[in-house]
Amino acid sequence: MFSAELKKGSVELLVLSLLQHERRHGYEIGKLVEQRSGGSLKFRVSSLYPVLARMEEQGWICGRWVEKQGDRRRRYYRLTREGERALALKQETWRAYTLAVGQVTGISHA
C-alpha cells in the first residue's frame, strides 16, 4: 500500500517502538507491525533483517539467543539506553513532521 521510500523512513521508529516495553524476536516484530497496522504495513524477512542488523551495529538494540521452555531457540532483541534516546528523538521528529505536514495540507489526526 505504501511506497518503499515511505516505509523505509519509518521502519526504525516502528521497530524501536515495539521494543520499548518488551523484548521481542524478529518474526514477532514483523507480525506485530502487520497486525497493528491492520495489514497496511508488511515487512518481509529480507527487508526487516538488515534493519535489525543496522540498529544493532549502531548500538540501539541488543540481540541475545534465548531458549524458552517448550520453544526453540530464538534471537530476542531489547532496547539499549542509546536506543531509548534514539526512539525519543524519532518520536519527537515524527510528531513535528506530521504536525508540519498537517498544517500545510490541512490534514489532522482526529
Binding site: 518481509r44 524477512v45 529480507s46 533483517y49 538488515p50 542488523a53 543496522r54 544493532e56 551495529e57
Partner: peptide, 20 residues
C-alpha cells in the same frame, strides 16, 4: 518468497553492519 535475492540481502547486511 520472503527472501528471493540472497546476494542483495547479503550486500545489505554487510552495508548495515560492517563489523560483521
Amino acid at each position: 518468497a520472503h527472501i528471493e535475492d540472497w546476494d542483495r540481502l547479503a550486500a545489505e547486511i554487510r552495508l548495515a553492519a560492517p563489523s560483521l
